[in-house]
């Protein structure tokens, strides 16, 4: 029995043990990734449990008062609302340009141009947040104020004064500036997944549509986009996740005020921006814990978004397989 096991260089023992060890090793290291995420969730939950307990899971989320001094009352709603508005706004603004870039790179552009566009998209994702922020505070915000906000504000003051409360004070640092800079920053995340999804559509689909006499756009509309829809939507989810978590650039341009209601040009605040602003300064324990609780909610949102994105991709893959 043992003799047969040890015979030859690729003996049973050697293979079994080697494979076992290797697999165990890989699993051990890989579970480090899961452990890390769980550890993070645990630390955030642990740190944030006090305000969640005191104000309630939803009470903390929907409370509108964030007062670390007098009332010691912490409600995250101004930051949640700011985060939602800025990231959804950024997604809406960036979605079509990103899709266009993906379509152009994947279908229309000559090879050399496509590779340049792809490279530039990667680069857009790689530019550090602080560099965007630097450009935002020194160039973009003053420019927008001078050439967009102020003229718009004055025009509204003249023609439709009723709009003014919605526009808010055009200082250049505010919600719209944050939305615009976020939009530019998340383009590559939508674009990359959309591009991959489009190039994964089988060539036969295109050829079939062309054979039916479709123009290039019709091929896009009828054959390619329906099949790559899942990837595109998943890309949008990831871009949204990125926008939700973006910290430095937003903090630098958003104006940082949690006074509701928010206005278009006026200052606002987001969950990451308030963490960056107040984390180093929180002296009171409950204040610090509330900031960590915000981090815990961010973690939950990131988790849900990724679950959604994964679900959409899986569903789409099954759908695509069904079509083929």
């Amino acid at each position: 029995m043992t003799r047969s096991l040890t015979r030859g260089p690729t003996s049973f023992m050697y293979r079994m043990l080697g494979d076992r060890f290797f697999a165990a090793f890989v699993v051990l290291l890989a579970s480090g990734v899961v452990a890390l995420a769980l550890l993070m969730a645990w630390e955030l939950y642990q740190g944030g449990s006090e305000p969640i307990r005191r104000f309630g899971f939803f009470g903390f989320l929907t409370g509108t008062e964030w007062d670390p001094v007098i009332a010691k009352q912490f409600g995250a709603w101004p930051y949640v609302a700011g985060t939602l508005v800025t990231s959804l706004g950024a997604l809406a603004l960036s979605f079509f340009p990103a899709l266009a870039a993906a379509i152009y790179a994947a279908e229309y552009a000559p090879r050399w141009l496509a590779s340049i566009i792809n490279y530039l998209l990667d680069l857009t994702a790689a530019v550090p947040s602080v560099v965007y922020g630097l450009w935002g505070i020194f160039v973009m915000a003053p420019w927008l104020r001078e050439h967009l906000y102020l003229p718009a504000y004055l025009l509204a003051a003249e023609k439709v004064p009723g709009l003014l409360p919605f526009l808010g004070n055009p200082t250049g640092y505010g919600m719209l500036t944050a939305i615009l800079i976020l939009a530019a920053m998340i383009v590559p995340f939508t674009a990359a997944l959309a591009r991959d999804a489009i190039s994964l559509v089988p060539q036969a689909q295109r050829e079939a549509a062309y054979a039916l006499g479709a123009t290039r756009w019709e091929v896009m509309l009828l054959a390619i986009l329906p099949l790559s829809k899942g990837g595109i939507i998943a890309g949008a989810f990831l871009a949204l996740g990125r926008a939700l978590g973006e910290t430095m650039a937003v903090t630098m341009v958003i104006g940082n005020s949690h006074k509701l209601p928010y206005t278009l040009f006026g200052p606002a605040a987001t969950m990451p921006s308030v963490i960056a602003n107040e984390f180093t300064e929180a002296v009171e324990q409950i204040h610090l814990d509330s900031l960590i609780a915000l981090g815990f909610y961010l973690f939950l949102v990131a988790l849900v978004l990724n679950l959604l994105a994964g679900w959409v991709i899986r569903r789409q893959m099954q759908l695509t397989k069904g079509v083929l």
Partner: peptide, 26 residues
């Protein structure tokens, strides 16, 4: 009574700049 004193308070109004530079700049 309504705002109080601290290193960060709930501001009744206005725009927040991170760091002295942003306040000065705005």
């Amino acid at each position: 009574q309504t705002v109080g004193r601290g290193t960060s308070v709930q501001w009744p109004t206005g725009l927040g700049g991170k760091g002295g530079r942003l306040v000065a700049g705005v």
